[in-house]
Amino acid sequence: MPDELALKVQGLEKRYGTTLAVDGLSFQVRKGEIFGLLGPNGAGKTTTLECIEGLRKPDGGTISVLGVQPGSSKKLWDAIGVQLQSSALPDTMTPREALAFFSHYHGLTPDYRILDRMGLSKKLNNQCAHLSTGQKRRLALALCVAHNPELIFLDEPTAGLDVESRIELHAIMRELRDGGKTIILATHDMAEAQKLCDTIGIVIAGKLAVLGTPSQVTASGDQRTRIAISSEENTVGRHKPTFAQADFVREQDGYAYYQTDAPGAAVTSLLIFLSEHGDALVDLRVERPSLEERFMEILEKGRGSR
């Protein structure tokens, strides 16, 4: 079950005129995971998602969504939930009507509790034109999951949301994943991807630049782990010792900064150094390169190779 595939994309290609928007993209998503599709604006994330969702016809490659070719059956529309990047509803439609509208098309009796869960209980009868951006996003998510789909596509779901709504949406996404749903999340918010995703794929210029867990992706970069150390006598900052495993970078505000490829050995060496000099440790921080830094590195490489 854990290795059962929810989605398989093989050599996906999509052209707009002479522009190759998606260039031979291949990846697969296991059931029950949150898969993050990352990339800068115009990288081809939305086009890829739209091909998978059946909104656009690919020019090459194969896609299998829950074992079915997208856009080919009504059953598939019932099995997937899609929140589009720019989803819209008629201005005069209310959240209550929207839920009933789509539920009836999915052959279900509307269950309005999902609107309560999304914090829209006081807006049930307000027309969409009078909802805030956050409320519209929450409504879109409610409509996307109301028919209990197996596979959920979220395209920039937290764009334009305030911090509180963003945290709330993250909690809902985790809840969905824990409930056995598979989520494909397109985002350019690296922190969001790092927090939520089990696997991420970074797309640059229509090609998959890197694929793996957030930790694997981060660790695969050229950037080194940073160590910041502070002690009562600032012995390290004053002596600036060098070790085989770590390079001294700078001393600032009572902290000595190092870069290393072997953080365990480097920390041990620093603690021994402090002990030998009779100094006491005040603070020690080990920071791995963030996904955002790794992303920027991949982006720079991508630009360099073009």
Binding site: E53, L55, K74, L76, W77, D78, I80, V82, L84, S86, S87, A88, L89, P90, F102, Y105, H106, L143, H147
Partner: peptide
């Protein structure tokens, strides 16, 4: 207006 604003796309992804 419905087509340009993406209302139809929202309908499409629900299999309408």
């Amino acid at each position: 207006t419905s087509r340009e604003s993406g209302v139809y796309r929202s309908f499409r992804v629900h299999g309408i």
